[in-house]
Simulated assay, not measured.
Amino acid sequence: MDNFFFKKRAQSVLVLSLLIVISYGSILITEFDVIKGLNSIPNAIIWGVTNFYPTRESLEKLPSILAKLQETILISIAAASVASVFAIVFAIFGSKTTKVNGILSTISRGIATLFRNIDVAAWAMILLFSFGQSSLTGYFALFFVSFGFLTRAFMETIDEIGVQAVEALTSTGANYTSVIIHSVIPSSIPQILSWVLFMIETNIRSATLVGILTGTGIGFSFDLFYKSLNYNAASLVVLTIIGIILTIEFISNYVRRVIL
């Protein structure tokens, strides 16, 4: 027992020492002034309190901000919803429980891994070359990331069902389509809906960054106000984003409690 705790302590010391060395090396390479950085924190807080808040003039821009916010929400919901339809098909082919054959399963898993591991900002920059700065660029960026994430999540959900339910129906003479429709999907649908709701929340958060890159939605409004030094209007955009994220999360959590 003493030897076990000694090894754990040694590992903790080793990891901590490694983090310190990496941090110190990064400071030297970037020539970051730690003292100056710490001293700037109070000034940053004072600037934020005195400049980053809505005013009466910025509230006049609220209708246009809400219109952009609505566009962002609709794009996020559409991307997650359509992606979930494609994702469930690829998840069925890729799942160990419902796979048709090993080759198709490997292809489905590979596609899901590729789309999931490319960041939404990278997708937005890639798609800018094809579609330019438009809502379609933002939609496809969110769609591809949603598709990759949901395919992987749906695969794990289907695998959790286990082969027993599938084998039970198969033994009665049910074909592949009947097994999927009458066993796999009904058993997975609550968790699948939960993942879709989670993806919508994530998309709304990501859509702000995507909007800055693609010049659309609420992200573009923030970028426009911030670059024009209209910090009061920019703060109003931030507050509306926070408000809608909290609202969507509350609704999502309520729906999850009902269906799960």
Rank of each mutant, 00 (worst) to 15 (best):
F220W: 07
V179W: 01
G37A: 09
D2W: 11
N39L: 15
E167H: 08
G110I: 11
L229E: 06
T157L: 09
G219H: 00
I126G: 09
F225V: 08
L193A: 10
I181Q: 08
L209G: 13
L104W: 13
E156W: 02
K68L: 13
L246R: 05
N101V: 09
V238Y: 04
E57Q: 15
P186E: 02
L239K: 11
V89Y: 14
F129R: 11
I65G: 01
T172S: 15
L66S: 02
L169H: 07
L74G: 10
K227M: 12
I204T: 03
A234C: 08
S130L: 15
L213M: 14
L224Y: 11
I180R: 04
S76P: 11
L28V: 10
S105L: 03
A234T: 04
I77R: 06
I22L: 15
K96A: 08
V34K: 03
A112L: 01
V21E: 01
V13E: 12
N175K: 13
S58Q: 01
I189M: 10
V120Y: 01
I107W: 03
G243P: 05
K7P: 07
L59Y: 08
V238D: 02
S221E: 06
I35Y: 07
L66M: 10
L14K: 11
A10G: 12
Q70V: 13
F147P: 02
A234L: 06
N232F: 02
S228P: 07
E167L: 08
I251E: 01
F86G: 12
Y254M: 00
I118R: 05
N51A: 10
F6M: 14
I41S: 06
T113Y: 13
T50H: 05
L229K: 10
K61W: 06
I192M: 11
P63E: 10
I75S: 01
A141G: 13
T113D: 15
